[in-house]
Design a protein around this nucleic acid. Structure first.
Lengths: 250, 250
DNA sequence: CGCGCCGTTGAGCATTGTCAAATGCGGTGG
DNA sequence: CCACCGCATTTGACAATGCTCAACGGCGCG
């Protein structure tokens, strides 16, 4: 009953694994909230701030990250239009979040959000589905970090990022608004290794730079180079790949 | 409800950061289910099986893992008494699970479980809390895999494992029922590196072998060697247990 | 008592990190 | 419009951590 129609449609509704987000049901919780704008680099909230709000990204790109005591940063995910930030339901944010590109969000008090979830059963399925997707994405990221080489990581990243963007997926034209440092912190690599890998991919024609943050990509080539996906029982691969919103976090 | 007490005291400890899990409310969902026993190595379910059941671990130790197409294995977590398996609410399990030690579990059909969650608001807070804890753990694991050295990983593992077990935490006596291969697959290392790291730790007196799967540990030394914990503001590194509780009564 | 499995240890090597310097994109001001 | 400047990015040389391959050790079980 949690796992309802809505959740299922989030998967199968769109043919291309574009954006299973934007469940109408959850989106309309935020519908009447005013839109706030965050400029590139602007924080939305900080790690261990009291978790007062839940945010819906209307448009833009957000990075979600943890800062370690030695100053290093780990990006646990990039969030796109339709994603929610801060649903983890802890009393403090376990991570910080900043706009990467100009981002428009709607804000909802967490208290009201929880109330809404409690009182309106029709919203719960998609909330749970979202948490599940997020968990699946986290596990995929663990697999990436635990087993993949630098090149596989970068290619995986490019493929999954391309999937978030219809233009990228269909037109082979990929925008990467985030910096190299962002990518490095996300993939558990150094900026130099990321850079070298991009160069190497370019030299082999898997990607072609068209400006600093735009590339023409050969998606099949990248998919091959991305290496292993979870195995077991034929259908499962597709299943995982299609369902898991690889970048969701929060 | 009192079954809860039993479970708390049975083996895995009690007051210490032991289990934010085992919220009495959730435990009693499983209360009347018969106990099933899984012997070491025995699978509970396989990756991409239809997710028909939710399990509560009454006693024992379970590994949860993904198998990659090249045969490698990534262990995404170890689960202890009081933990739940299979709450991810996808229609298929995204991972396999096997008993590491002799394990007793209670099984609940996922359908009934979801029904229960839907109909009984009093259970929802602790379910949410649990999902949040799981997410927090996943993010910590990402941090570990993205930034830590072999030694830091092993020490982190030892400290966190010790925290699950009162005897280990208080008496400095730690049981590690899992194999080196399990540990390696969990920490994103090879079995050789894990072994070497154990030897090195032993030679420096941070741990003292007392049999193949038992060690006497110096927890403070290990905590130091474990390196970075998330920074920023107060003592946010205790997040796992602390935050979940707020929902216990919501 | 011996076999097999799990774990340990060793040597060499590869990938990736570190440190340092050069390059060039993109924005700004003349 | 062009030149310049700052900063992200790239590239290079080198070091090191952890992996691979290989052999050995020892505990447990038949």
């Amino acid at each position: 009953m949690f796992r309802t129609e809505v959740a299922y449609q989030s998967r199968s509704g769109t043919v291309i694994p574009l954006a299973p987000h934007l469940q109408p049901s959850l989106a309309c919780v935020f519908e009447r909230q005013p839109i706030e704008i965050f400029e590139p680099g602007q924080p939305i909230f900080w790690q261990s701030d009291p978790a007062k709000h839940v945010f819906e990204i209307v448009e833009g790109l957000v990075r979600v990250f943890k800062i370690l005591s030695d100053g290093r940063r780990v990006i646990t995910g990039f969030l796109y239009a339709g994603d929610l930030i801060g649903i983890s339901l802890m009393d403090r944010y376990l991570y910080g979040s900043e706009a990467v590109a100009k981002t428009r969000v709607r804000r909802f008090s967490r208290q009201s959000f929880q109330q809404k979830m409690d009182q309106s059963p029709e919203f719960r399925p998609s909330l749970f589905a979202r948490l599940s997707d997020e968990m699946a994405a986290a596990q995929e990221q663990m697999v990436l970090l635990a087993t993949k080489t630098a090149e596989e990581r970068v290619c995986t990243f490019l493929v999954l990022t391309a999937r978030r963007d219809r233009e990228a997926f269909v037109m082979s034209r990929l925008d990467l608004p985030m910096t190299r440092q962002d990518i490095a912190d996300y993939l558990g690599l150094t900026i130099e290794t990321v850079s070298r890998t991009f160069s190497s991919l370019a030299s082999r024609g898997a990607i072609t730079p068209e400006g600093r943050h735009q590339y023409r990509i050969k998606i099949e080539k990248l998919m091959t180079l991305a290496g292993e996906v979870a195995a077991f029982h034929d259908g499962s691969d597709m299943h995982d790949g299609v369902n898991a919103r690889q970048f969701a976090s929060a």
